[in-house]
Structure formats: structure tokens, C-alpha cells
Write a protein that binds this DNA or RNA. Structure first.
Length: 470
RNA sequence: GGCGCCGUGGCGGAGUGGCUACGCAGCGGCCUGCAAAGCCGUGUACACCAGUUCGAUUCUGGUCGGCGCCUCCA
């Protein structure tokens, strides 16, 4: 079966056909590093991490490029709010983003280009656009360079809007614009802005407009025509519309597929940087296990809005821990397996091929877990090992295998020092002796004492097992 | 005003012109010394009103409600 993806531009689900057979180039808009990432930002990262893992499973050589926009109005504005130069603030937020990636099990992108490192590529693109008659330097001496939307009849196709219905762009004084909807490719240096935030160009010193960096960088690393361009749905317009216009007007075919993930809302509204930052990844990760957070973020379809609530998050954690519990117990019984030999359930594969239908894929996974639990009741067997391998393979494709080195430490439910192992084992021996002589009061007393110390005891057909909780 | 998305059982969340989503919670049972975990069983769910149809939660139109974008946004 072919992989099918929903393409925002055509508003249909289409068979995926790569530019180059066997390869896929994906570019998704990383962050404008004006602040540390919140749960909404990381939803996007996790979504594209799952996409990337699925393409790799399907045998594609994946090139994943996620940019960092480290210079723009908002970043500069932080300089006056916070103590420190804009570039230090941007860098600190890059580091926070990397910490969030790691915490939530996202594989690093193939490359992570930064806007400030690609000024020459941007200048080149502007020159091409001016030469072709689609951009012009403002005649008010501001040093701004604008994209001429009237010169590009296709402007508006991505967001399905007509130019005449659009409101004026407010990214600069309209004085130098030919049309109020023209957007800035380049912004001339202003007296009150730091000189460090300006670069020389044929049109004077200045800094890039918001959209230019992505067109320049995607062109450099993925080519004039590439496979998939992604990002949050809120980027569809103006950001992606403008990228598309800039690139195609410069003669570059650009993205074949546009993928946009839906927002994560809080209190019924989109989490917005301008409304105030809440639900920082660094904060959520202290209240919930990161692997549970990842499950919560990918369990709904990527094109469905997530209304964040603590209750739903906690419920998702319970749901995932059921799966995780099976993996842990089955691993204890089988002695461990190599997940690479596992085969995903056909229903799982079909669901993932169908525009990354993770909810349906998880339903298949849950059925496999139920089967596994039944097998587990009979102890070790080839069928159990087989099932466990399949379950772990499926989990791995979602970045959720609890035994992946990625998560070790964070989710280790049995790990403790050898001393604790010995002490608990000794107490459990005493309890087993008590049970053997039907002294259940003594046996339960030992279990209660262990429970008070945070050690939970369960009796299984293979004997008692214990885990450290909390 | 323009362009879109969504309203599913107590909760989360898929999907389909007729056939069990799945999970959480609840209830009943099995297993267990007890428990935990697990397994089995268990729900007149598709905002409202019309229309199309043999049949609509699914398609069409309308109403109500919620959300996103229209140059800060993931």
C-alpha cells in the first residue's frame, strides 16, 4: 500500500510520490527562538518526528531540516524586556528547545540551519526576485525591500484566499509599499536597533524579514523542488504563503506537499506567545513523565485540535502505562527480545500509511497488547516473544518504546541500587515463607511495609515482582 | 466582511451510506489466601432542523455552539 498524506495546498489526501525515488526531503519550520518551547511547539516537533520515523520504516532515506529563526522583530523585542543581547537570548532558547526535543524523545533533525547563518543566501534570493520584477527596494530610503504581491497572480493559492479580501500587512510602514499587502523581504537598519542585528546588502544594512529565511534555507539544503514542507497550521498564512510566493516567483518549484499540524489549545484558545507563555515543556515534564506526555501528544490525529487538560493528560498516562506494563512484564518473563525483529500489525501499518492515522494505529497496538497479556499468563513462549517484539517495534515507530535507551532512567520502574534489590528480595523471601505457612497477617504486614517505602509488590504466576512507585 | 475546521456514549478520541474503533472511568464475572496486574462480559453515542436515500452519525442545505487564519504565532 502506498503512503498517503493530506496536502494542505490541494486540501486532499494524496498518494506520496517523492521527487527522487527512495528519498524524502522534509522541511518544517522550527521556532522563532524568542522564548522557551511550550507544549504547542513540541507537539509540532513530535508530529514530524513520528512522520520521519514512519518514512524510515517505509524504506526512505530521510533528510529532515528544521530551521531556527534567531533574528526577527520578536527576538529583538526581548532584548529590552530581558537582560542581555538578543543573540544570547536566542541561543538560550535554542538550548531550551534542544532540551525539550531530547526530553520528549525526538530524534535530532538531519540539520538545523539558523537564519543568521544564511544571510548571503537570502541576499541572493532577493536579487533574483528584484531581477524578475517581483520585489523592489522601498523608495522612501528606509532600506526595506518588499515582495510585490500584485506581480504574482498565484499569491493566495496556499491559503485559498483572494488578494482583494486580504487585510494590509502591518510589518512595516506602508509608505514605501506599492500595495499595502506587500510584505518585507528585508528590513533596513533602524537607529534604535543594535548594529549586531544588521548585515550589509546591496540595499543597505539591515536584517531579514520573517519569511525569507525559510525560502533561502530550504532551497540550499533540499533543493529548488522538494517533498514536504510542514509546520503548525497557524503558519499557513502568512508565513507559508509568503515562502511559497517568494520561492516560486524566483523560479523554484518548491514543496510538493504541505503538512500542517493542528494547534494545542489551553482554556479553549490557542496557546500564543503574545498572550503569555504557559505550559512550558520544562514545566510539564516535571509534573508528568515525558514519555506519557509524548503519548498524550501523538494519540490524537495530528490534524485534530488538542484541548489540553490535566485530567486528559493524566488519563493518557494511565492508558500508556497499561501498554508499558505489558512490555515490562513480558520482558521480565522472556528475558528480553530484539525489537528490530518485530513486525508491526498489518492494521497498524495500514493506519500509519493513511495520513499518519495514529489513533487507528494505537487501536491495533492495544489489540496486540491484549493478546500479549493473554500469552503472558502462560509464561514464556515463542508466541510471547514474537508478540513482544511486534509491540516494541510498533512503539518504537512512534518513539514510545519504554525500553529504548532514549527513555532509560526516566521510565525505569525496577532500577535501583543493588542494596535495595537485596533488601527487597530478603523481605520478599520472608513474605513467601509466611505465605507458605498461611500466615497471611505476617505476609501482608511485610507487603504493607514495603508499600509505605514506595515498593509495590504484585504476585504473578512466576512469583512476586516489585516496582518502585512515584 | 473573506477563507477554513469542529460539535460522537461519564471522559479522551477514531471512523463509516447499512457491519465491535480503541483507551480511561463504571458495573458484573474469572483468576488471586487477600490485593495488584491481567483476562472475559457489559453502553437505545453521534448538536439541532429539514432534504436526498430502501436506509444518514456519515451526503446536501439551514440553525445553534466552539475554534483557527486574514501579516506576532508551532
Amino acid at each position: 500500500m502506498t503512503l498517503r498524506l493530506y496536502d494542505t495546498a490541494s486540501r486532499t489526501v494524496r498518494d506520496f510520490v517523492p521527487v527522487v525515488t527512495g528519498k524524502v526531503g522534509i522541511y518544517h519550520c522550527g521556532l522563532t527562538v524568542q522564548g522557551p518551547p511550550h507544549l504547542g511547539h513540541i507537539r509540532k516537533e513530535v508530529t514530524f518526528d513520528v512522520l520521519r520515523r514512519w518514512f524510515e520504516f517505509r524504506g526512505y532515506a530521510v533528510t529532515l531540516v528544521a530551521n531556527i529563526t534567531d533574528i526577527d522583530d520578536k527576538v529583538l523585542a526581548k532584548e529590552t524586556e530581558q537582560d542581555g543581547p538578543w543573540w544570547a537570548i536566542a541561543y538560550a532558547n535554542v538550548r531550551a528547545l534542544h532540551a525539550a526535543y531530547t526530553a520528549l524523545g525526538c530524534l535530532p533533525p538531519t540539520y538545523e540551519p539558523r537564519a543568521t547563518g544564511h544571510i548571503p543566501e537570502m541576499v541572493e534570493l532577493i536579487a533574483q526576485l528584484i531581477e524578475r520584477g517581483h520585489a523592489y527596494p522601498a523608495d522612501d530610503g528606509s532600506g526595506d525591500v518588499y515582495f510585490d504581491v500584485r506581480s504574482w497572480p498565484d499569491y493566495g493559492t496556499l491559503s485559498n484566499q483572494r488578494l482583494d479580501d486580504m487585510e494590509p500587512a502591518a510589518d512595516a510602514d506602508a509608505r514605501g509599499k506599492r500595495d499595502p499587502r506587500d510584505f518585507a523581504l528585508w528590513k533596513g537598519h533602524k537607529e534604535d536597533e543594535p548594529v549586531t542585528a544588521s548585515w550589509p546588502t546591496p540595499w543597505g544594512r539591515g536584517r531579514p524579514g520573517w519569511h525569507l529565511e525559510c525560502s533561502a534555507m530550504v532551497g540550499k539544503y533540499l533543493g529548488d523542488e522538494f517533498d514536504i514542507h510542514g509546520g503548525g497550521l497557524d503558519l499557513r498564512f502568512p508565513h507559508h504563503e509568503n515562502e511559497l510566493a517568494q520561492s516560486t516567483a524566483a523560479g523554484r518549484p518548491f514543496a510538493r506537499y504541505w503538512m500542517h499540524n493542528a494547534m494545542l489549545n489551553l482554556d479553549g484558545e490557542k496557546m500564543s506567545k503574545s498572550v503569555g507563555v504557559s505550559l512550558l515543556v520544562s514545566d510539564v515534564a516535571t509534573r508528568f513523565r515525558p514519555i506519557d506526555v509524548r503519548y498524550y501528544l501523538i494519540a490524537p490525529h495530528y490534524r485534530s485540535i488538542i484541548e489540553f487538560t490535566e485530567a486528559a493528560m493524566a488519563e493518557a498516562a494511565t492508558a500508556f502505562q497499561r501498554v508499558e506494563g505489558y512490555v515490562v512484564r513480558a520482558t521480565e518473563v522472556t528475558g528480553g527480545i530484539d525489537p528490530a525483529v518485530g513486525e508491526p500489525d498489518p492494521d497498524f501499518t495500514a493506519a500509519m500509511d493513511d495520513d499518519l492515522s495514529v489513533p487507528a494505529a494505537l487501536a491495533a497496538l492495544q489489540r496486540a497488547v491484549r493478546e500479549g497479556n493473554k500469552l503472558l499468563a502462560d509464561g514464556d513462549s515463542p508466541a510471547l516473544a514474537d508478540n513482544l517484539a511486534g509491540v516494541r517495534r510498533m512503539l518504537g515507530l512512534l518513539g514510545l518504546d519504554p525500553l529504548d535507551p532514549l527513555w532509560v532512567g526516566a521510565t525505569d520502574r525496577t532500577g535501583s541500587s543493588q542494596a535495595i534489590d537485596g533488601l527487597v528480595a530478603a523481605l520478599l523471601d520472608q513474605r513467601q515463607e509466611a505465605r507458605a505457612r498461611k500466615d497471611f497477617a505476617a505476609a501482608d504486614a511485610i507487603r504493607d511495609r514495603l508499600g509505605e517505602a514506595g515498593v509495590e509488590v504484585e504476585d504473578t504466576p512466576q512469583g512476586p515482582r516489585w516496582t518502585v512507585v512515584g
